[in-house]
């Protein structure tokens, strides 16, 4: 019986030693994972918030395992976090590519719309009468939409300068809609 107790005690001690031997590698892996997550945080929170939330949760889980002394599991979990960081970077890059394309479309279209709108508003401001289908109220609302479009598009430009592509695209899209509203109010044609 005593012999059996001794064997069990030795086995338990062996397991503890084996487990403790994973502490340093787990700590190192956690540090690496934490650094990797911190490195993508700013852009990931902006461009891939859901993926970043999952990543932060995975890191918290790995830390929790470490705190509980489950170093082997913590080591594996930290490695998993590091590989998930790559997925988040890919998601961020994909979103940025998508937004850049959207900005190229909106940022290219709005100044052209504003140019033709300004030209038409300038001519109409000199007209003694207005064309069929356009009255003073409609002209006034078209001018208002033109000015709103100009203001919102300026904000889009500021957002772009500040590196906020998402806001730039949102504001640019709003400006395009306002410009289209003004063109429609003036009876102008929009390209198909």
């Amino acid at each position: 019986m005593n012999r059996m107790r001794t064997i069990l005690a030795l086995a338990a001690a062996g397991a503890l030693v084996a487990c403790a031997s994973q502490k340093e590698p787990a700590q190192a892996a956690l540090n690496a994972a934490e650094q990797a997550v911190a490195g993508v945080k700013a852009e990931a929170e902006r461009y891939a918030p859901d993926q970043f939330k999952a990543l932060a949760g995975a890191l918290a889980g790995a830390k929790d395992l470490f705190t509980k002394g489950e170093y082997e599991k913590a080591l594996a979990a930290a490695g998993d976090v590091t590989s998930k960081v790559k997925d988040v970077i890919n998601a961020v890059n994909a979103k940025k590519t998508e937004l850049t394309k959207a900005w190229e479309q909106v940022g290219g279209a709005v100044p052209k719309m504003m140019e033709v709108l300004k030209s038409r508003l300038d001519v109409l401001s000199q007209a003694k009468k207005l064309p069929a289908g356009l009255d003073a109220a409609k002209l006034g609302s078209a001018k208002g939409a033109y000015e709103a479009a100009a203001g919102v598009f300026a904000q889009a430009g500021e957002a772009l300068k500040a590196g906020n592509l998402q806001e730039a695209v949102a504001k640019g899209t709003a400006a395009k809609a306002k410009a289209a509203e003004a063109m429609t109010a003036l009876g102008m044609q929009l390209p198909q």
């Binding site: 001519v123 109409l124 000199q126 007209a127 003694k128 009468k129 207005l130 064309p131 069929a132």
Partner: peptide
């Protein structure tokens, strides 16, 4: 000019 501007005198534009 009358059709688009409502004012024929704006034809020079």
């Amino acid at each position: 000019a009358k059709k688009y501007y409502g004012d024929a005198s704006l034809y020079p534009k």
